[in-house]
């Protein structure tokens, strides 16, 4: 597709998700973070504190936008009002890119506010391809979609998740926000090999990586974003980088949010992991 709005904000290196707990750290201390990711919906408000801090922090950091409500896989019509608001925020922020999740969030205008899995079927692929194209045409840019973690699978599934994801990226001509933790969580929940998933990802379409912590219940794993990144996920991350090369990477923390310095230390770990993976692959 043609990128009608040229994207001048360059994103590379290692980032963090911007959370309200850390507003003052970013404004006052300006810690070294290559870029920040904001949750789009948190700033799709008329005014006040959220937009004040967003504008202020944007002056010092490149930003990417990450949405949770697009419901790209939903069967309700695309929410044009939501898309218009999203576009307004894009104009304000001038983000490096815009992402959301490969999922649906509600049906019959009932928003469940959750990232619900798609049935991995040809019908879903057709539906998603059409909608991704509509969104990309409206926004005038390619979007990134993130693979979500899941706890159940549909009886109707016709293919594996990795086949589904890579097929969609190519049909819809969109990019991937690859969440390594989500691959790990789903691999444990569904009993597949996460390395096979990584192998199936088209390297040139992977534009961003998410790392996060999860909660291990033994026979299932929950994607909680309230723990540090676990060893198994670091290993999968190193493998991903070795295979596809360096990709802008960030750590997501949404609960039990620690002081910023702890996240900065964890981000340094990500830098080291990526560097060692690149060295090994060379």
């Amino acid at each position: 597709m043609n990128e009608t709005s040229s994207c001048t904000t360059k994103i590379s290196g290692f980032g963090l998700g911007l959370r309200t707990d850390h507003y003052h750290d970013f404004v006052d201390r300006k810690p070294v973070v290559d870029w920040l990711e904001v949750i789009s919906e948190n700033y799709m408000v008329p005014g006040g504190k959220p937009l004040h801090y967003l504008d202020s922090i944007r002056r010092d950091y490149p930003i990417v936008m990450h949405g949770v409500s697009l419901s790209i896989g939903g069967s309700d019509p695309l929410d044009r009002g939501y898309l218009r608001e999203l576009k307004q925020l894009i104009d304000r922020v001038q983000p490096g890119w815009v992402s959301d999740h490969l999922c649906w969030t509600g049906v019959d205008h009932h928003n469940l506010h959750d990232l619900l899995p798609m049935p991995y079927t040809e019908a879903s692929l057709r539906h998603l391809t059409d909608r991704v194209q509509q969104v990309q045409d409206f926004l005038g840019r390619r979007i990134l979609l993130e693979n979500v973690s899941s706890y159940v699978a549909y009886a109707a599934d016709e293919m594996s998740e990795w086949e589904f994801v890579s097929e969609l990226l190519s049909r819809a001509d969109c990019h991937l926000l690859f969440d390594v933790n989500n691959v790990y969580v789903s691999s444990r929940n569904h009993g597949f090999d996460p390395w096979v998933y990584v192998d199936a990802m088209p390297a040139r379409r992977v534009k961003q990586i998410h790392l996060a912590g999860h909660e291990d219940h033994g026979d299932f794993v929950v994607d909680t974003h309230d723990h540090p990144v676990r060893d198994e996920v670091w290993a999968l991350y190193r493998y991903t980088i070795a295979r596809i090369g360096e990709v802008p990477t960030m750590i997501e923390r949404d609960d039990d949010i620690p002081p910023l310095d702890i996240l900065l230390a964890e981000l340094a770990q990500a830098r080291e992991a990526a560097a060692s993976a690149v060295a090994l692959a060379a």
Binding site: E41, M44, V45, S69, Y82, H110, N111
Partner: peptide
Amino acid sequence: PSRKPSIR
């Protein structure tokens, strides 16, 4: 039930 895109 929530009908808005944002949980806010």
